[in-house]
Structures are given as C-alpha cells and as structure tokens.
C-alpha cells in the first residue's frame, strides 16, 4: 500500500506546485502598471532578448542552410527545385522558427532566469526585498515575465528571416536555384494570416510557458546549491517538453482541422 500513499503524496505535491505557480503569476501580473516597472522590463529585455540574439541568428542561419541543402537534393529529382523557397520559408515560419527559438531560449535565457532568481532566494535577496516593503513578485518576477513574452516572438521572427536568407545562400548562391523563383514562389505561397500570424501566436504561447516555468522554478527552488542545480535542469527539461507537446496541439488546431 506504500506506493499508493507515495503516488497520492506526489500527485498532491504536483497540484500544490501548479497552484503556487498560478499564485506567483497572478501576484506578479495583476497590478497597476508603473513607469518604474517599464524601465525594469526594458532592462530585462536587453538581458533575455538582445543577449540571446547571437545564438538565435547563428542557429537560424545554419538551420536555413541545412534545410535548403536537404530540400534541394530531394526536390531536384522531380525537377521541383524552384519550390525550395516556399519549402524553407513555410517550415521555418510554421514550425522551426517558433519551436527551435523556444528550445534555444529555454536553454539560454530560461536557465539563466532560474539560476538568477534561485540564487537571489538563496542569498536572501528576495526576503530582504520583502522586508524593505518591496514586493519581489512585482520588482523581480513581473519585469522578467513581460520581457520573456515580448522578446521571444521577435527572436522567432528574426530566426525565420535569417533562416530564409541562409536557404537563399545555399539554394541560390551555391546550388544555382533561380533567385527569382526562390522569392516569387515564396511570396505567392506564404500567407500572412495562416503562416506568419499562426507562427507568431505559437511563439507567444511558447514564450509564456517557457518564461513562466523558468521563473517559477527559480522562485520555488530549494535555496541550496543542489536545489538550484535541480531547478535549472528542470527548467530546460520541462520547458522543452512543454514546447514540443504544445506545438503538436497548436499545429493540430491551426493546420490539422479544416
């Protein structure tokens, strides 16, 4: 019977954790906006957004290049290499842009957020904010959530744009696909609302989930070195799984049901 007790206890602990995560989110976001917090959000945008730019751009470039190379070798057999443009751009805008950006963001910015907030907790900085009558949810948590939610869709768009240029570099400049057909078929095929907007919506959903997981894991971490190490690992694992799982659900909702 012990395993039943164990299962019950761990289920209750998980539900309790979800409750705490919602309390943290509502405590941070349900507040009157203040100019001071806008400034803090811009600072955080620099940390989570601008500082993630390089990894996003380099990854986007290589993924675009690889897709063009792989796509070309298949399409050329059917004489359809002219469709390389839409293949690269649709894959990036619908799937790879939002998903890979979210995975990279979880590894680059999410883990940093968890470790930073976990260490602030371990070194009593969060407690000291509370004792100075400053709510850490509004001062520390809220600007980071907003920054993550604003930064990720922009990073995903940059990822896709650089990826399309990478595809052009390999497909057109190296393998000799006609530049005009690369762009014109892409322009004719990619739809603003169905492809671009849906990609942005996906990215916003991933942004909320990844940033929320990262910040909650730090805020709820056991304030020891093992606790913070575990929380950082969990951030990357949980947010990656959540992104991949949610991607399927969102794709089914957006493209699967006609």
């Amino acid at each position: 019977m012990n395993w039943v007790i164990g299962l019950g206890a761990s289920t209750l602990a998980k539900i309790n954790g979800v409750g705490r995560a919602f309390l943290m989110l509502s405590g941070a976001l349900i507040a009157v906006p203040q100019l001071k917090n806008v400034r803090l959000t811009i600072q955080q945008l620099y940390v989570v957004g601008v500082q993630s730019l390089l990894i996003i751009m380099v990854s986007g470039l290589f993924i675009g290049m690889v897709m063009a190379l792989q796509g070309y070798t298949i399409l050329v057999n059917y004489g359809a290499e002219g469709s390389l443009g839409p293949m690269v751009s649709l894959s990036l805008l619908r799937e790879l842009g939002p998903v890979v950006t979210a995975l990279l963001f979880a590894g680059r910015a999410g883990s940093a957020l968890t470790a930073e907030i976990g260490l602030m907790k371990a070194t009593e900085q969060l407690s000291s904010l509370e004792m100075m009558a400053v709510d850490p949810l509004r001062r520390v948590v809220a600007p980071r959530i907003w920054a993550g939610v604003i930064a990720m869709p922009m990073l995903a768009l940059i990822f896709s744009a650089i990826g399309i240029l990478g595809g052009h570099l390999v497909g057109v400049d190296w393998l000799g696909v006609d530049s005009g057909s690369y762009w014109s078929i892409m322009q004719a095929t990619v739809e603003w609302d169905k492809d671009v907007v849906n990609g942005i919506i996906k990215s916003i959903v991933f942004a909320i989930v990844v940033t929320w997981i990262a910040i909650f894991k730090g805020y709820d971490a056991i304030p020891t070195s093992e606790g913070i190490s575990l929380a950082t690992t969990q951030t990357v694992v949980f947010s990656s799984l959540a992104v991949l799982g949610l991607d399927f659900v969102l794709t089914a909702l957006m493209f699967g049901i006609n």
Partner: peptide
C-alpha cells in the same frame, strides 16, 4: 503589512546585498 515594514528593517546574516 508593507506599510508597517517601512518602519522596520532587518540585517540579514548574509548581508543580502543586491549583487
């Protein structure tokens, strides 16, 4: 509570300075 905390302060063991 937050209003009252402005009249108290605490020196933490670690100092808890913002790094």
């Amino acid at each position: 509570l937050y209003h009252n905390r402005k009249s108290m302060s605490m020196l933490f063991q670690s100092g808890a300075l913002f790094t």
